[in-house]
């Protein structure tokens, strides 16, 4: 569970998150959408403290990550993150990318980590690539490895920041399929996306952000068919 209370973030004088409150229940799948620059990434990155909130409170399960006394490293082990630019470790093989953190952070034995890693590679359909370096992979393959890498820590929840935005169109589907199959396992997920069809199909709730504010929070059927706010109506009109 993730609970967010009056989250604010400023860069210098510019406030990019203007007091956001919401709760993501265990097993819930949240799609976060909104115009470019509306604060979606910043919102997501505050949850695992890649950005430090200016004020407000965030709890991940029992731990308040905004409390400086809480060990954020422990919290990050439970929260997987997938980035638009993949951010795989280029000097490691695919399997090493996946097993590094479990071995070095959790103290898993190499053997167990590799076993689990191979299982995950199979799940994302890349078993035959375990010995390759990331440069040899297509964008879609890289992103699937990145998802496997995050899952290798056995996180309780996953954050996705536009996981398909850097991909060629023909590769979007393979990555979305992997995320969908993950959704079926009951994983708690927050996904920033521009893929409206995907959001409508997979999400339990849509959060619509505009100008640093949480403007709408509704189930996808409701949000896409009858958005309440003018801003959401304008946004949907533009992209659909």
């Amino acid at each position: 569970m993730i609970k967010i209370q009056d989250l604010r973030k400023s860069y210098g004088k510019v406030e990019v998150l203007k007091g956001i409150s919401t709760t993501i229940q265990k097993g819930e799948i949240i799609a976060i959408i909104g115009p470019s620059g509306s604060g979606k990434s910043t919102f997501l990155r505050c949850i695992n403290l890649l950005e430090t909130p200016t004020s407000g409170h965030i709890w991940v399960n029992e731990a308040e990550v905004t409390n400086p006394k809480v060990n954020i490293m422990k919290v990050r082990e439970q929260v997987g993150m997938v980035f638009q630019q993949f951010n795989l470790f280029p000097h490691m093989t695919v399997l090493e990318n996946i097993t590094y953190a479990p071995i070095m952070v959790k103290g898993t034995s190499k053997k167990d980590a590799e076993l689990h890693g191979r299982e995950l590679l199979k799940k994302v359909g890349l078993s035959e690539k375990e010995g390759e370096h990331p440069v040899r992979l297509s964008g879609g393959q890289k992103q699937r490895v990145a998802i496997a890498r995050a899952l290798a820590m056995s996180p309780e929840m996953m954050l996705f920041d536009e996981p398909t935005s850097a991909l060629d169109p023909e590769m979007v589907k393979e990555v979305l399929e992997v995320i969908k199959s993950l959704a079926l396992t009951g994983m708690t997920m927050a996904i920033v996306t521009h893929e409206m069809g995907f959001a409508r199909e997979v999400a339990d709730r849509v959060l619509f952000l505009d100008d640093g504010q949480l403007v709408e929070d509704a189930p996808p059927a409701e949000f896409f068919s009858s958005p309440k706010s003018k801003r959401a109506q304008d946004f949907l009109e533009k992209i659909l």
């Binding site: 695992n48 422990k74 990050r76 993150m81 470790f89 952070v105 990145a146």
Partner: peptide, 27 residues
Amino acid sequence: VDKGQLEASMALGIPYKKMMKDIVLPQ
């Protein structure tokens, strides 16, 4: 070294020293 490498390391909970030694310095 690409900032994304640091972010990915942090997101995985990799401690600073290990991140420097195994992720950043080799690159």
